[in-house]
């Protein structure tokens, strides 16, 4: 049924703008797999359907971007996959294991950096280690290395409020990576940053993904950001959220801001924008 929906909503795709077909069954043992996952909040009369049944698959090491209008259940999707919420129907599998509770194998970055104001930057980055009750000594070198990678060397002892918004967000990316999770989930991570910092962070994130090889699920409502970063872009419909289309982004892994003037990039942005123009619901 979902497959039919997808072909209906997108007109004849050209070669590099293809809608991704159904995933083959043998790849389900690895990566993230959602089958018939839906979410309805509340009970009785106050029921609000947030997500229509979703089926899709995210491969290992893939940069997967979800783009959609606000209130379409993007954040719900993120909470479902990290095990913070239970789906109303359907099943989520991470590496073949069914998700029933927080599995700890994810790093999350929210729109706000959400650093703990009473911990210095290094201790904030080490927070997952404390939560998982692992040995701090073992992870301190890694934390420092990550901070160096994002250009925060020398800020370890600073408190969060002493850093700019962009720096705080970079620290929160380190926190999401410190325990070496398989999956990194980002909920509009650069939404609170100014446009210039945002572009820089995009390039940086692209580089981080290349060097670490993490599976990244990123949620955004900036279409250019989505296309610039993604291997695959999932376009969501308005509430209740469903899949409008899934696009491949054949731009190669090594991306600089020049990629934004590539015709493939501009075509894809225009095509995705069309999904929302008909509903005119993008804020």
């Amino acid at each position: 049924m979902t497959a039919a929906m997808r072909t209906m909503s997108v007109d004849q795709p050209s070669a590099h703008l293809r809608v991704v077909s159904e995933q083959s069954a043998q790849s389900k043992a690895s990566g993230i797999n959602l089958s018939g996952v839906s979410k309805t909040y509340g009970t009785g009369d106050g029921q609000v359907q947030s997500l229509r049944p979703l089926d899709f698959h995210i491969n290992d090491g893939e940069f997967f971007v979800v783009v959609g209008p606000s209130g379409c259940g993007k954040s719900t999707l993120l909470k479902l996959i990290s095990g913070l919420l239970a789906p109303t129907s359907g099943e989520i599998h991470v590496d073949g294991k069914k998700v029933t509770e927080p599995h700890g194998d994810v790093g999350i970055v929210f729109q706000n950096a959400l650093l703990l104001p009473w911990r210095n930057i290094l201790n904030n980055v080490l927070m997952p280690i404390d939560m998982k009750n692992l040995s701090r000594e073992k992870y301190i070198p890694r934390a420092k290395e990550l901070l160096k990678m994002v250009g925060l060397e020398g800020f370890e002892k600073k408190l969060p409020w002493q850093l700019s918004g962009g720096m705080q967000q970079r620290a929160s990316i380190c926190r999401a990576l410190v325990h070496d999770p398989k999956i990194m989930m980002m909920d509009e991570p650069f939404g609170a940053l100014d446009a210039m910092t945002r572009e820089k962070m995009n390039v940086e994130l692209s580089r981080i993904q290349r060097t670490t090889g993490k599976t990244i699920l990123l949620i955004t409502h900036s279409i250019p950001e989505a296309v610039f970063l993604a291997d695959k872009v999932l376009v969501m419909t308005e509430r209740p959220g469903g899949i409008a289309a899934i696009y491949d982004v054949p731009l190669g892994r090594e991306r600089t801001l020049d990629a934004m003037s590539n015709p493939i990039f501009t075509d894809l942005v225009a095509r995705i924008r069309k999904h929302f123009m008909t509903n005119s619901a993008l804020d």
Partner: peptide
């Protein structure tokens, strides 16, 4: 979101509360 973040790191209830 902060509590969700700590819970997603598999922190126990007590640990999340104290931290």
């Amino acid at each position: 979101d902060m509590v969700d973040l700590a819970r997603a790191m598999k922190g126990s209830r007590l640990r999340v509360f104290c931290a």
